[in-house]
């Protein structure tokens, strides 16, 4: 039986009828039309589907859309304001913190979480903080550089 859910995504209200088994990532991509969060492994390992739920990073492939009823979600699409990239997005751009780019939306959302909890992380803390996100191009060094650059900006 379908259930009605109402939630806010990137500040905008959404109301839809969904099957309880619909995963949040499928709701975001196929119902809400937000294809920024990616489906990588679908087994809660890779982190490409990471979004913010009530201000905390979660893997949207391991959550039902009905669990998000009444909640606030932010996806990668919600970061840039008035055409200006978020400082973390800008740092990934400047430092070329990506190769193919598939993992990037998840990496950026996980970085938002990391810097929120720890505004000036060490290299080790960055790698520990992003352990829930995999880059299959193995381009981790530039990702770490981008996080460091973003942390410097946020602290300045």
């Amino acid at each position: 039986m379908k259930r009605k859910i109402s939630l806010r995504i990137n500040g905008k209200p959404y109301t839809d009828e969904v099957e309880p088994r619909l995963l949040l990532i499928h709701y975001l991509r196929e119902v809400a039309g937000l294809t920024g969060p990616h489906i990588g492994c679908e087994t809660s390992i890779c982190g490409a589907c990471t979004v913010m739920l009530q201000g905390r990073a979660v893997k949207s492939c391991t959550m039902f859309a009905v669990q998000a009823d009444g909640r606030e979600i932010v996806t990668i699409e919600g970061l840039a304001a008035n055409g200006a990239l978020d400082p973390v997005q800008q740092a990934f751009w400047n430092e070329h913190g990506l190769q193919c780019g598939f993992c990037t939306p998840g990496m950026i959302m996980a970085t938002k979480q990391l810097l929120q909890d720890n505004p000036s992380p060490t290299d080790l803390e960055i790698r520990h903080g992003l352990e829930g996100n995999l880059c299959r191009c193995t381009g981790y060094q530039h990702i770490v550089n981008a996080v460091k650059a973003a942390a410097g900006k946020a602290g300045a």
């Binding site: 809660s44 982190g47 990471t50 739920l53 905390r56 990073a57 979660v58 893997k59 391991t62 959550m63 996980a110 979480q113 990391l114 909890d117 903080g129 352990e131 829930g132 996100n133």
Partner: peptide, 9 residues
């Protein structure tokens, strides 16, 4: 436990 996303949920 797991990673930060898992620990959040």
């Amino acid at each position: 436990i797991g990673d930060v996303q898992v620990r959040n949920m």
